[in-house]
Design a protein around this nucleic acid. Structure first.
Length: 1026
RNA sequence: GCUCGGAUGGUGGAAUUGGUAGACACGUUGGACUUAAAAUCCAAUGGCCAUUAUGGCCGUGCGGGUUCAAGUCCCGCUCCGAGUACCA
């Protein structure tokens, strides 16, 4: 039993942690200073975590992993004398809250508030050094006011390809007024009409607006979307499974809808080039490169024979060198020319094909790569060089959304074209020298030598591409062109819980609300569903119209289209608020009203030095925020071009699910009568068998042996009986059955059904808490168990993603309660490399916890704090400095798992040395404080300091304490280590060799032989060959 | 299919980038303390063989190679994970 005396002397983590968490909050210990507050020279350093979406499930132990790593780094940088900005906030708009609102009628703001509170409590318990005074929430009107403001800036900008920058729309208007759009080189919609200055000036205001909309960086356009009529909303690709909605399984159709889009494609090249300068992992940069999908080639035109000259089909190709290998063309079924060129004879067939293709979703089409389909249109195009007629086909292997929606098919050089040609018996001319194309296409660019191609003959791919483009330009049939896969991003959502657009409509054209009247607040609605006629949820708002004379939101009924206009009903997507939040943190709460952040603050903090988060944001958030940062930099709002200098993806912490195994007799009994079968299933539906037995039986079944349960209550394998110590258990269970005349029960491998069970019911040895299990869910309350020979019921374990539905969630609160936050922090780091996925195993935590207890005991002897001023021993100094060196290197390399081991070794050694010298224990407290801040603060205070340990300078490593005089040399014979020998490090190569050769063990190893060679690497190794 | 990662004891993982493989922990086993348990402490712990203090052989997914020396470098495979996909 614990006495009062014991509690004082022991490491009482609950008390210590609560004490310091309270102090840090009261004293604002981790508040970052704005440049004007600095009293001493301190360079800024910005450490940021990807902010969480506050879900109703709360945090599990996987979530804080990245936060702990960044917190260690932030605390380390403070010790190193930096002014560290380490904030936290919430990405608080989002679908789950809305979904919950639809089900319960609860306002999403309310549930979000509750969830945030829970998150905050959980985060606080882990002892993070966040500067909470700078918290942001994307759903806060004071925050989304500036999201709306950025949207307006995008609307007021266009992208000038000549300067490669965004510019104010006024400069475009000016150009139009002076020279029309003939000299404009802008990122804009396809098919913008050309006009002269006179024509522009004569256009109506509406016409001008409509034209400008085609140039703006955010624009309204007809976009093909996945529309789900039953749910009344657009779905993202990942919300559709097998052509039906993920939720509810409703059909999805492709539909054109007017949507806001972001012209991110204008920034494709800069987003690609910018990656070079970033300190991100190669895999992450690679994902972004793939997503941007740059391909260099040529765009060319094939005239259509039945059409007047100059009209033709545009195609994009990366292989203009193979142009003489073209034997047909393929258009996407949706291609606008299809209906125009199809001949009368082919019409019926083509239309049937188009109809069939339109019924398939884009996803279906992509999933079904195997089957080759297509139809001949009857039309022909003309080869630009040979003037030969080329048949034009349609086929759904060509996607309307990429390139021009048409390809010049070169079957000898492209496998898809090859397959298509083979399938429809189209000729496959070969343009590759010395290559056999009878089996498959030849796509190896590096090995290519062109032949059968007039002026390209004998050239390699690179030269032939250049030559082909040159010739195409000469005859005005095409030009060199770079294509990007990156599409403009749809920015409208038919949702309630998101940022409202600061947009109203006059004559169907969008107008921006003047910036000074922001924010435009999200209106109240009675139900969080689309309206009956299919408008988004905001269509339900009564008060949702813009009064341009009063500049405020008024009742919808007042709309007169003269001064009161309808407001936009869509809201912004999740990535809107998260694209710029890092800059909001740079400003203090008091000074946030006038701007997203002040120029001084933006200039001082610049961008994020270290960003830690999950890799699932590789192509979403991380691309969009780069885009917005570049845009705001172009428009002189931000001083930087990139948001995140260094980025680390933390790996996922996986859960270890536990399974009980239920005996499922319904299919595998040889019970003869119906009555017997009924009895059996009734009796056995709740019978669980220990995994140790399941494991043995399954193994035997795999070896095709027969396993029976016999009336004696034994498992019988091919006549051999497995003895279990709990036979009675088995006997009782089966008694009534056997009494009814059954003489054995055959077991098959489908007999045991694994069922997820809550991991909190499992102890460290995988033993089930049977009483707890029975109480866990009502259907198990009469469960019966067959235990193994030790009388235990064992579960099986499997590593899976941590999730509520798998009952494998481990809650950090519980760990903090049982072991303390410092233990949790160190254990999460100890699990393995930060970037790697790894399973959580609570059993292992005791090792780290014991380590902290041992650390405590270095400073405490019983209940006496015992640290002496006596000089430290040589060994202790060596231990300390070895530790400083390694831990510092590890932090710099984000190798936190090895630094925890280093601390363990350090404490083990100091314990062994019985060290309690202040010279050692004081720097050690500082060294460990980033990892285990609470215990460090407590010890630091006991050491006589009144300031937080976080203000202490980081210990300085001194080489001199590590100076060794001797080295224990491993002595190898033919590369195999046989013994070790202590020798002075001062010895020369020859002296070492001499000492080794003189050793009697060497002579014994050699056994009379003479070595051929002796390799001596001073300070490392000796290897004797022969 | 393509791209990028991985593969080391019963488990999580170390290994100064070519120099004593398995650090540090967990687990397991044995011991001390205890009426007992927990806690704590001590010892052993890659496999196989031998045992007299001593030793030997094998061993980092598989097969080759380079080297005095390979978990690490090179060539060829197998398996696992992540991302992405008719991208012309």
């Amino acid at each position: 039993m614990q006495t009062l005396h014991d509690t004082i002397m022991q490491y009482n983590f609950n008390e210590i942690e609560a004490k310091w968490q309270k102090k840090w909050a009261e004293l604002q210990t981790f508040r970052a200073l704005q440049p004007e507050e600095l009293t001493e020279q301190k360079p800024p350093f910005y450490v940021l975590d990807m902010f969480p979406y506050p879900s109703g499930a709360g945090l599990h132990v996987g979530h804080p992993l990245g936060y702990i790593a960044s917190d260690i780094y932030a605390r380390y940088k403070r010790h190193k004398g930096f002014n560290v900005l380490h904030p936290q906030g919430y990405d608080s708009f989002g679908l789950p809250a809305e979904q919950y609102a639809i089900q319960t009628g609860q306002h999403p703001a309310k549930t979000t508030e509750v969830n945030i509170k829970r998150y905050r409590e959980q985060l606080d318990k882990i002892g993070f050094s966040f500067d909470w005074s700078r918290e942001v929430r994307t759903s806060d009107p004071n925050y989304y006011r500036w999201t709306q403001w950025i949207f307006i800036q995008l609307f007021k900008s266009w992208f000038n390809n000549n300067t490669d920058k965004a510019e104010p729309i006024s400069s475009l208007v000016e150009a139009f007024e002076n020279e029309g759009n003939k000299n404009t080189n802008a990122a804009c919609d396809d098919g913008v009409e050309s006009f002269s200055a006179e024509e522009w000036n004569a256009f109506s205001a509406n016409k001008k607006d409509a034209i400008l909309l085609q140039y703006r960086l955010t624009y309204l356009a007809e976009t093909e979307v996945n529309w789900c009529p039953a749910l009344g909303t657009v779905l993202a690709n990942d919300e559709i499974v097998n052509g039906v909605s993920e939720r509810g399984g409703h059909p999805v159709v492709r539909k054109k809808m007017k949507q806001w889009s972001m012209r991110i494609s204008a920034y494709a090249e800069r987003l690609l080039q910018g990656l070079e300068k970033l300190d991100w992992t190669d895999s992450l940069k690679e994902s972004q490169r793939n997503w941007i999908g740059k391909s260099v080639g040529a765009q060319l035109k094939f005239p259509i024979l039945s059409f007047p000259k100059r009209e033709g089909i545009s195609v994009f190709t990366t292989r203009p060198d193979t142009i003489f290998g073209v034997s047909f063309m393929t258009l996407a079924p949706e291609h606008e020319l299809v209906s125009k060129i199809t001949t009368a004879e082919q019409k019926e067939e083509v239309e049937a094909y188009i109809k069939a293709a339109s019924l398939k979703s884009e996803r279906d089409r992509m999933a079904d790569v195997k089957s080759i389909t297509g139809v001949f249109t009857g039309a022909y195009a003309e080869h630009p060089f040979t003037k030969e007629p080329i048949p034009i086909w349609i086929g759904d292997y060509v996607l309307a959304s990429y390139g021009t929606g048409a390809v010049m098919a070169v079957p000898c050089g492209d496998q898809r074209d090859y397959d298509f040609a083979k399938h429809f018996n189209i000729p496959i001319p070969n343009v590759f020298k010395g290559v056999d194309i009878s089996k498959e296409a030849f796509a190896d660019k590096a090995q290519t030598i062109i032949t059968n191609s007039e002026f390209l003959n004998g050239l390699n791919a690179e030269d032939a591409i250049a030559k082909a483009i040159e010739k195409l330009e000469e005859i005005d049939a095409g030009t060199g062109k770079t294509n990007y896969r990156l599409r403009d991003a749809v920015f409208s959502r038919q949702r309630y819980w998101g940022e409202p657009f600061p947009v109203y409509y006059v004559d169907g054209l969008p107008k921006m609300i003047d910036e000074q009247y922001l924010p435009l607040h999200l209106p109240e609605i009675n139900e969080y569903l689309p309206t009956e006629d299919g408008a988004p949820p905001l269509g339900r708002a009564e008060k949702w119209a813009w009064d341009t004379t009063q500049n405020k939101v008024v009742d919808k009924e007042l709309i007169d289209h003269k001064s009161i206009f309808p407001l936009e009903l869509n809201t912004m997507p999740g990535w809107a608020g998260s694209s710029w939040y890092l800059f909001r943190y740079m400003e203090t709460k008091e000074n946030r009203n006038q701007h997203m952040a002040s120029a001084e603050a933006l200039n001082y903090w610049k961008n994020v030095d270290l960003y830690i988060g999950g890799s699932e944001h590789a192509t979403g958030h991380l691309l969009y925020s780069r885009f917005w940062t570049k845009f705001l930099n172009d428009r002189k709002v931000l001083p930087v071009e990139e948001p995140f200098k260094k980025l680390i993806n933390q790996g996922m912490i996986l859960g270890e699910s536990a399974f009980v195994h239920r005996y499922n007799p319904s299919f595998d009994t040889n019970a003869k009568t119906k009555r017997e079968r009924e009895m059996l299933s009734l009796k056995m539906n709740n019978l669980f068998i220990s995994y140790n037995l399941v494991h043995i039986i399954n193994k035997e079944l795999k070896a095709s042996k027969h396993v029976f349960i016999r009336p004696e209550g034994v498992f019988d394998i091919n006549g051999e009986k497995i003895q279990t110590k709990n036979i009675e258990n088995l006997n009782v269970t089966f008694e009534s059955l056997f009494n009814s005349g059954l003489n054995n029960i055959l077991i098959k491998d489908s007999s045991f059904i694994p069922i997820h069970t809550d991991v909190s019911l499992i102890n460290f040895s995988n033993e089930l808490n049977i009483e707890g299990f029975k109480k866990w869910r009502p259907e198990f309350q009469d469960a019966e168990f067959i235990k193994d020979e030790n009388g235990k019921y064992i579960v099986s374990r499997e590593v899976e993603k941590m999730s509520k539905s798998k009952y494998n969630v481990v809650n950090p609160d519980d760990i903090c309660e049982d072991f303390g936050a410092d233990t949790l922090r160190m254990y999460e780091m100890f699990l393995g490399p930060l970037e790697q996925a790894k399973p959580w195993n609570t059993a292992g935590i005791t090792g780290v916890h014991n380590f902290l207890k041992k650390l405590w005991k270095l400073y405490y002897n019983g209940d006496n704090f015992e640290v002496t001023a006596e000089p430290a021993s040589k060994e202790a100094l060596k231990t300390l400095h070895k530790t400083i060196k390694k831990v510092t290197e590890d932090i710099e390399n984000f190798s936190f798992n090895t630094s925890v081991s280093t601390f363990m070794i350090c404490v083990n050694e100091l314990t062994q040395q019985k060290c309690n010298a202040k010279d050692i224990l004081e720097p050690l407290a500082v060294l460990i404080s980033p990892y285990a801040p609470h215990i460090a603060e407590e010890l630091w205070e006991k050491l006589g300091h009144s300031e937080s340990v976080s203000t202490a300078a980081y210990p300085v490593f001194e080489e001199k304490f590590l100076k060794e005089e001797n080295k224990t040399y491993p002595i190898s014979f033919n590369g195999k280590m046989r013994f070790t020998l202590d020798l002075s490090l001062d010895l020369s190569k020859d002296e070492i060799e001499k000492a080794v050769m003189e050793d009697e063990r060497t002579q014994k190893q050699l056994d009379g032989r003479t070595p051929k060679k002796v390799i001596v690497v001073p300070g490392k190794i000796v290897n004797i060959v022969g």
